[in-house]
Design a protein around this nucleic acid. Structure first.
Lengths: 262, 262
DNA sequence: CCCATGCAGGCTGTAAACAATAAACACCGC
DNA sequence: GCGGTGTTTATTGTTTACAGCCTGCATGGG
């Protein structure tokens, strides 16, 4: 089939090439998904990296030019980000990177505590009596890796496995909508705050909480697992708020020198 | 300001008018919001009314013509609906109205039970010691209206106030993200199942549960309120599953004569 | 010196054209 | 008759163009 001039994808027709850095998107990533999807990922990266700080406006034409696509996919991505809660769009004004207020962040932690707690309880029930289940082994491995990271003071590694541990629990609990909601809100927290809160000292405490939680889950004790999971999340909130209080780099919309929504 | 030819909005330039029924959208609704928003609402109405049954495909050009707008806003609305979980889009194939499987519906009920339970607990704490709070009065009124509806066998009225009661509780609990998630998933359940499950007999039972729940909340008893709210939601799930089991009109994707995704 | 008004520019909202994919159909060889 | 293949057609993905809105600045009046 398709004995057409082969077209060679769409890499050839872009004569006005490298306008700037992030480009080169069209050529590789567009492989098997709508462009809007790739653009959304690119925008998320820009937000995470701080290139688009909270309060900044997403200029459609500028971003389109920068990514080497037209405004359509950029618009689509912006609306998707709005649904994800990362930006807010105002009629005829455009999309702005949201600033996560302290109040809202605290509420998200509260929500996450309930969700994570229930996931832990569900998982404990699922694993009850099946200590040899593959999920159990996986969780044990993850915690073991975190132990090593703590010993070595490897912050990045700990962060990664910490996120993985939480993800695995909500994954294994079996409730898909719960998993989706939890991950969505966790990502919101991660993207919109500067992740400078978890000092090395807190790493030890957090890991100890992980051990207690995992023990309850593996013992099949649903309610203790729920309590430990909730307590762990609320402890995370406390760490976050404490870091903010002592002049942490986050939340307050006043320190963004960029244009921002009224 | 704005002493321009007054333009009269954008109602004048559409000479090729009434293509079909649902139209007339552009002229009125577009008042102060992007068209995509209005289109999304229109599509939701079409889904709820059954004009777009589960499994049906959303033809962009057809819908655009029918609503009297171009494909852009329709696309935007379709993507928004995907984020809401009402449709799934497949690359180069389009958007299809989702069919809510029994499994997933049950999981959503489970999630909602936890969320609603926590909302009730939070609200109980908030109202603890403040029996005269305006929220308390509002809730009492809603339940009173439901009492009357039950006596008169007014199903529609009961449904409306039932939804309102739940909405008020998550509203008053003070946690905005929790409220958003709960309402989103509740709407998903409402839109994707034929709401034929709640027979008149169940109405009485549900209302009794409302009374118990409200009593706990007003008494400031957080944990009992949580238990009642969870039980109420799970009872709703049981009613739903029972209705399905006895040949209810829902869920199974096999009975949709329309084209559907593979 | 301060404030309101008029004006210009940039940017978004919407529409319509263009390109490419995927499904459906008809045709051909076996 | 049947499976495979080439072609057609409808529909989506993307780009480009146009119209209106909002904002910022300059200008004139109080």
């Amino acid at each position: 089939m398709s004995h057409r001039p082969a077209a060679g994808g769409r890499s050839g027709d872009e004569t006005r090439e490298g306008a700037s850095g992030v480009s080169a998107l069209r050529d590789r990533i567009a492989a098997r998904q709508p462009l809007g999807r790739s653009v959304k990922a690119a925008l998320e990266a820009l937000i995470e990296s701080g290139a688009l700080p909270p309060g900044a406006r997403l200029n459609e034409v500028a971003l389109a030019a920068r990514l080497g696509v037209s405004r359509g996919p950029v618009r689509e991505a912006a609306r998707a980000l709005e649904k994800d809660g990362l930006v807010t769009v105002i009629l005829n004004r455009g999309a702005f990177v949201r600033t996560l207020g302290l109040e809202e962040a605290a509420q998200i932690y509260e929500l996450n505590a309930v969700l994570f707690g229930h996931a832990a309880a569900l998982l404990a029930e699922r694993l009850s009596g099946r200590a040899g289940a593959p999920e159990a082994a996986t969780l044990r491995e993850t915690v073991a890796r975190m132990d090593r990271a703590v010993e070595q003071g490897a912050l990045e590694a700990f962060f990664a496995d910490n996120a993985l541990f939480h993800r695995q629990i909500v994954e294994f609990c079996g409730n898909q909508p719960l998993r989706a909601v939890y991950l969505e809100h966790t990502r919101k927290l991660l993207l919109l705050r500067r992740r400078s809160f978890d000092a090395a000292g807190n790493m030890r405490a957090a890991n100890a909480e992980h051990h207690r939680l995992l023990a309850s889950i593996l013992a099949g004790a649903a309610e203790p697992a729920r309590r430990h999971a909730e307590a762990h999340t609320r402890a995370g909130r406390a760490r976050f708020l404490a870091a903010i209080a002592q002049g942490g780099a986050a939340a307050e919309p006043s320190d963004t020198p960029h244009e921002q929504a009224p």
